[in-house]
Amino acid sequence: MTYAAALGMTVLEATPERTRVAVTVGSTGLNMHGTAHGGLIFSVADEAFAIISNQHAQAVAVETHLSFFRAVREGDLLVAVATPERVGRTLATYRVEVRRGAEGEVVALFLGTVSRRETVHPAG
């Protein structure tokens, strides 16, 4: 089982233009204040970042940053929406908005840059 699967993440969409990953905050995802642990929020953003950045190249993260804007509660659905900011030959930067619900408020903003290693060729 992968880390994302163990956390209960679901891939809703996966294209080079937009990738969406969802997770519902459960009781095991809470911090000492009873709100979503920052690691859970980071994890859903990072999963969307990993999926989108590996669509057409083998990508390895070189830098990430996450800003928290709003508290998240147990039962909230988080949807990480990843979009490209700039995709070059060797480096690519992606923006991931973590939203409460499919079209809800942005609760966190993730920016990440990857090193692109090689082109991925489709099977067949």
Rank of each mutant, 00 (worst) to 15 (best):
M1T: 11
M1S: 12
T2A: 02
Y3F: 14
A4K: 05
A6P: 06
L7W: 02
L12Q: 10
A14M: 06
T15Q: 06
P16A: 03
T19E: 04
A22Q: 10
G26I: 01
S27Q: 15
G29C: 14
H33K: 13
G34K: 13
T35D: 09
A36M: 11
H37P: 02
H37Y: 12
G38L: 09
I41F: 01
I41K: 06
F42A: 07
S43L: 03
V44S: 06
V44H: 02
A45N: 02
E47T: 13
E47R: 06
I51W: 04
N54T: 13
N54G: 12
H56G: 13
A59F: 05
V60Y: 04
V60N: 00
V62R: 13
E63V: 07
E63L: 09
H65S: 15
S67Y: 10
F68D: 05
F69W: 11
R70L: 09
V72K: 04
E74G: 04
G75N: 09
G75D: 06
D76A: 12
A80I: 03
A82T: 00
T83S: 10
E85S: 12
V87E: 12
V87T: 10
V87I: 14
G88F: 06
T93N: 07
Y94I: 01
Y94M: 03
V96Q: 04
E97P: 07
R100W: 05
R100A: 08
G101Y: 04
A102T: 13
E105G: 12
E105A: 13
V106L: 04
V106N: 11
V107Q: 03
F110E: 10
G112Q: 02
G112N: 01
T113M: 08
V114Y: 00
R117V: 03
V120W: 07
P122V: 13
P122C: 01
